[in-house]
Design a protein around this nucleic acid. Structure first.
Lengths: 196, 196
DNA sequence: GTACAATATGGAGGGCCACCCCGTTTTGCA
DNA sequence: TGCAAAACGGGGTGGCCCTCCATATTGTAC
């Protein structure tokens, strides 16, 4: 969803060339991030997109903005999954399943975890719908249900859980078998280290 | 412990000027890392130490090497703590206490967590005594005792636990109340999310 | 179809960085 | 005290992020 669509009220529609470049940059960024992670060189992205670096910076004033644009649809998928799982019979299982899905996405999209974790307190509180807040909103309902059914300790917050998930993903990101490791550690963290 | 001490067999002792610069760089690095974290500029460190950047690079061929030298004594403190705790009455508590200490150190020394996590698989398997392996060795005994007393599930490894601790520290590193957050999340991860 | 103002572009350049080359200086031993 | 070996560091290279501004493109009003 480029920031064009005339749903966003006061902003004029993008000019054709602007939109074309916006899309190219996004595609190049997705490619580069998959290859190098969230720290991919912005100049390299501009080069791949065939635009000048100034154009990249005009469309995306910060790396964080670019990451959010790249990951937006993945995040929307996760939010949709949360909505689906809200109807599952066991609220505790539903929450755990969803957290697992978050971990899987974060692991298979290098940089997503880092992107999800930031955005809360560095700059741009003007931008309402960051990946960070979208995910938190999506998870909140799932956690509320789990709380109500007493599947989760009342003092545990959604921020706690997401921080844990993202921390784990960040930590295993460059291991060879990161998906398995993330799953293993997440399960460990959710169930604790004690036997049984 | 600069790599001088004539205990290390085949290497000649360092020349006086080399050793002086080595120490200066180390002090400047500790200062800069405390101020800016593990990503502190190497040129800035050389500048503070009053040496040329080439000298810094000669003594520490990679950032990782420098970090390890800076954190070595902190890591040794942690290893000593592990030895002490090996005599504690409750092996499960001892392990938890030690992991808490690791977390506290990692949080109060920006960059330590990242440093502890790397070193396993990127480059330089020649260098035997990295922070990483030192910590793992220290924790292994504690975990073995905990396993024997059935305080920890048998499939949990020390690598799991340390990865968890470091992941948490990495994640909360730039929050304002990182120490409290790290402690909270670590407890959560060790005990699980379920009530009671 | 044309003219023109608004909009978008990108190359060049500044400031910062990691890392390396190599002529010069310092050290320690004989 | 002489001198080879060891260490030093200024300066160069190339990469990065980001900004300025002269130029080119676009959409629209006529």
């Amino acid at each position: 969803m480029p920031p064009d669509s005339r749903t966003t009220s006061p902003a004029r529609p993008m000019r054709a060339d602007a939109r074309r470049n916006y899309d190219r940059i996004l595609a190049a960024a997705a490619e580069a991030i998959a290859e190098y992670g969230a720290e991919a060189s912005l100049e390299e992205i501009a080069r791949r997109a065939g635009v000048g670096s100034a154009t990249l910076h005009r469309h995306f004033p910060s790396r964080q903005r670019l990451l959010e644009a790249v990951f937006r649809d993945k995040v929307e998928t996760l939010c949709a999954a949360a909505t689906d799982l809200a109807a599952a019979p066991d609220p505790g299982d539903a929450l755990a399943t969803w957290l697992g899905a978050v971990a899987r996405h974060a692991v298979s999209n290098r940089g997503l975890a880092a992107s999800l974790m930031r955005g809360a307190h560095d700059g741009d509180p003007t931008l309402g719908a960051t990946c960070h807040t979208m995910i938190i909103n999506a998870g909140s309902d799932l956690l509320a249900r789990a709380h109500r059914s007493n599947a989760v300790r009342p003092d545990v917050t959604i921020t706690d859980l997401l921080k844990l998930v993202n921390a784990i993903c960040l930590a295993v990101e460059q291991e060879p078998d990161s998906a398995a490791q993330a799953d293993r550690l997440l399960t460990l963290a959710l169930t604790g280290v004690h036997p049984k």
